[in-house]
């Protein structure tokens, strides 16, 4: 068991040596846990919250009663949340697609395997031994066209599945919100409906 003196020293050393020092480092560290920010409620963001209000007014129409406005704001909230997810997914794919030096994960795996193979060959034979065809045929250029998109989708499968879950939830919320609005409008007295 460590002595209290040793524990104190370890703690003091840890405090002195860990954590980012520069403002840039601190900013980067603050973003460590952030992945896509899609779990944050829309209304927590003041800008989006304002968008929800404006959109709700547009959905409810002129001179809508508070009940309708409330239901419309549920639709607007779900719709803006849905757009947030779709935009995040679009950005994720577009960012990789626009990267001219994009190198798929599968290529890294092949390169790693080939490096191990070369090391084994050098150990067993001569360093100037012929290169196996398998290594010569390994992909060396960044993929283009449909292959690139296919590799991007493969690499992003995990993130895309997570985003799909958020999209599904937002779609479900929007569907029920619209149904509630339709039901409320159908229950309104006729003159209000005609207005």
């Amino acid at each position: 068991m460590s002595s209290p003196r040793k524990i104190r020293a370890n703690r003091a050393n840890a405090k002195a040596s860990t954590g980012p020092k520069t403002a840039h480092g601190k900013f980067q560290a603050a973003q460590n846990a952030r992945r896509h920010g899609l779990s944050l409620p829309i209304l927590a963001d003041p800008v989006r919250s304002e968008e929800v209000k404006n959109s709700a007014r547009e959905i409810a129409g002129e001179g809508a009663c508070p009940e309708i406005l409330e239901l419309a704001s549920r639709i607007a909230e779900a719709q803006i949340d849905l757009l947030r997810v779709r935009l995040a997914r679009h950005d994720l794919i577009a960012k990789k697609l626009n990267n001219p030096n994009y190198w798929p994960h599968e290529f890294f795996v092949i390169a790693k395997k080939n490096t191990k193979l070369i090391a084994r060959l050098i150990r067993r034979f001569d360093p100037l031994a012929p290169i196996p065809r398998e290594i010569l045929d390994a992909p060396e250029n960044t993929p283009e066209g449909p292959k690139k998109i296919a590799f991007i989708l493969s690499d992003l499968t995990k993130q895309l599945i997570a985003m799909d879950r958020y999209e599904r939830r937002a779609l479900s919320r929007r569907k029920f919100a619209i149904r509630a609005l339709d039901a409320a409008r159908a229950d309104l007295p006729r003159p209000q409906l005609r207005k």
Partner: peptide, 8 residues
């Protein structure tokens, strides 16, 4: 070693 085709 895997079955390899050696080409210089």
């Amino acid at each position: 070693l895997p079955n390899l085709d050696f080409t210089m």
